[in-house]
Amino acid sequence: TKVGLTGIGAEEQPAGYSHYRVCFQTHELEGLNKKMEMHLGWTSSRNLGCDDKVTGDHGKEARFPFLHENVGSFLNCLPIWEKPNSTLPRGIGEKLLLHLTAKELGLTSSALLGKRALQFGSGIAKRKNNNEKASDKCGKL
């Protein structure tokens, strides 16, 4: 069986989204914690099924390494202020922990690559009708 690795949890847990920086600047640590909890809560209902379907459609089984309990336990042990580095430029400071980990694991060529969500990396989000919701059935089917 072929396996496809997905990045779900890679940005939610270490505060890697760029908008987390804005949330922290506006609402400080309490607001950042709430935003992160909200995103993690969405993971099972919004993201896992989509990635599983896409990898399955390509004849692969999805694996979610960033959702492994050891990864989550480690990240939960870190104080929130050690996760993103807001002194570095946008796109670097939020993902510094991810990039350093990738480099440490020997993934030097991919350590500096940006991670893009499936729906944004494919460009499909730009093509969708703004009135549609993710749960709506496509009218073009």
Rank of each mutant, 00 (worst) to 15 (best):
H68I: 03
L97N: 06
L141W: 09
T43A: 06
G114P: 09
M38H: 06
T26F: 13
F74H: 11
S86Y: 15
C138W: 07
C23I: 15
M38R: 06
K35R: 14
K35C: 11
K137S: 11
H58D: 09
N85W: 12
E69D: 10
G7P: 06
K137R: 15
E37R: 12
M38G: 06
K103H: 11
S73V: 09
L88C: 14
D51L: 02
G49N: 04
L107S: 07
G49D: 01
P84T: 15
P89M: 13
G56E: 14
N33E: 04
A117V: 08
G91L: 10
T6I: 08
G123H: 04
Q119R: 01
V3C: 15
T101H: 06
G56M: 14
G9I: 05
L75K: 09
C77F: 00
P65N: 05
Y17L: 12
I92A: 14
L75F: 05
L98D: 07
L96V: 10
I8D: 01
I80A: 12
E82P: 07
A15C: 11
E69Y: 07
L48H: 06
C138E: 07
K34M: 14
K137Q: 13
I80S: 10
E104M: 10
P14F: 04
A117C: 11
E28V: 04
A134P: 02
K140I: 03
